[in-house]
Design a protein around this nucleic acid. Sequence first.
DNA 1: GCCGTTTTCGGCCCGACTGTTTTCAGTCG
Length: 599
Amino acid sequence: MLRRPPVDGQGRLAARNGYSSSIQLFLSVKNREIAKILYDMAELLELKGENRFKIIAYSKAARAIESLKEDIEDVWRQGELKAIPGVGKAIADKVREYLETGQIQSYQILVAETPPGLTELLQVQGMGPKTVALLHDKLGVTNIDQLEQAALQHRIRRLPRMGATREANILKSIDRYRRRSTRIPLYVAKPIVDQILDYLGQIPGLEHITVAGSFRRGRETVGDIDILATSSSPEAVIGAFVQMPSVEEVLGQGPTKASVIVKETVQVDLRIVDHRSYGTVIQYFTGSKEHNVKLRGLALQRGYSLSEYSLKRVATGEELYFDREEDVYARLGLPYIPPELREDRGEIEAALAGKLPRLVELQDIKGDLHVHSAWSDGLGSLEELASAAQGLGYQYLGLCDHSPSVGIAGGLSEERLQEKIAAVEKFNQGQDGFRMLAGTEVDIKADGSLDYPDRILESCDLVVASIHMAQNQTEREINGRLISAIENEHVDIIAHPTGRLIGRRDPYDVDLQAVLEAARGTGTIMEINAHPNRLDLDDHWSRVAKDMGVPVAINTDSHAPDQLRLMSYGIRVARRGWLEAGEVVNTRPLTDLLPLLDR
DNA sequence: GCCGTTTTCGGCCCGACTGTTTTCAGTCG
Ligand SMILES: Nc1nc2c(ncn2[C@H]2C[C@H](O)[C@@H](COP(=O)(O)OP(=O)(O)OP(=O)(O)O)O2)c(=O)[nH]1
Ligand SMILES: [Mg+2]
Ligand SMILES: [Mg+2]
Ligand SMILES: [Zn+2]
């Protein structure tokens, strides 16, 4: 279908002011590199026993630069480095030094002073900066193997505040460290969470139970599973928790919380408090840590001390209890901040200013614009797909099977595609209030051309374009392919723009900022692929797209009717990207969507 | 090292659990 021309002056203006191509190539890579160095510096300074607030300052600056929406090099050129929250004179100077010379002197010195391997020791549970420094000073331990030897040879127990138990625990921690896995994708954590909730739900004395932490915030991966419960007999609940059949190791256990390991490497934390503290404790345990720290700082400014137990008036010591976290935020003068936003990425400032977005919800979705069918490698007839879609309250589905060069996935020949278009047309005649869109997921070939000729694309209701082959090309080549697809007037949507598979495959070498600039110029829609392995665009880039005014669609890329339900994963990404319903094209009813696809 | 509708100095979130301690530092959430 024909895409619309640039819709507003904003798009054209931005295109003119766009970044020069040499900068585009490295955009956001520098942000990542500098953030990494600052994180490293924080650890190295910590090992040197530096002031802890200095360390916090470095970590905070690193985080701010990591989640920056602009290219740090542009920020520098505009003389705005110190406008980044957490970046002051000293760190701004270091950033400038890095951008000018490619290195940071003080960082080089820190690295040279510190044996390689020492910072890795901080990854071992229970090993903090003080212990690492002590074992390095007294025993010359500089890496994991030496730490293990020191423990096995009982050399650690002779040091102050060390003992036999400590040694044994270090050995256990080293073992866990060596078996450690990466962060767990949300959808992998989901059944584990459900199982634990089910199990604990049956324990007598348990009142309320829910999942918190990064899982509740909808992060794409979680580092552990955080469960919150209220009970007036917490010890009994903790006891039952550590006795769960799936528990392989108990890391710690007290009257209010416990941590265990299940499934070899998955840590589960359980926290229990009295129900009167429910509002504050769910706020606390949902996090993020950075959000909590900032909120607690704000509370202090307002004369309160906020903990998981209560909001306490500092002046009088009076404790206020809340049933709901909304009320905690309200008492601090803030509107409710949805968990997906709680990353200290400006949400508290936005809340204070009354400028929080009204986040898109699953109920806002009116259709799915990237769905496979039995015509290619998917399962499901038109009837089955339409029925599943209508069950979800949808008004339309974009039926997008593969193109010929994706032969392994049953890509359709031109003839087959035309048959499909005819079949869809016939199908639609029997429909009332539902429309199947005859589409394609056309491959963007290695040379940047599309896998169907224009006259075929023109006959589709919907054209989704994406990269499947030659994923190892250079950034310049990948960008060239994506941008030429964007510039093809028939292409409506770019699917899974970076190609990453969570935990399995890195993104292509792609400069997404430049791709988004191009999409803004043409009004091409960028996909948030909701498949929980993909989530592509991710939350960060979804927010960049939002801020740039690039339209977004949330699509499941379903290969079977029941996969349409995966939409909820994409919704979480969109919400974490601050997107409102109006910024997501498939919240539009059919009649408002069609003009976007066809002038 | 950063920051400021109380501040340019003096704060920077607050609490649980462990192992060692005889009163608490270190680590983690
Ligand atoms: N106030 C405060 N809360 C914290 C701190 N550390 C953790 N929390 C709270 C907020 C976290 O979301 C929650 C669970 O801690 P986790 O270490 O499991 O972090 P989270 O789940 O956010 O991320 P994860 O995916 O597990 O790495 O506990 C802290 O230092 N201060
Ligand atoms: Mg967690
Ligand atoms: Mg945790
Ligand atoms: Zn697909």
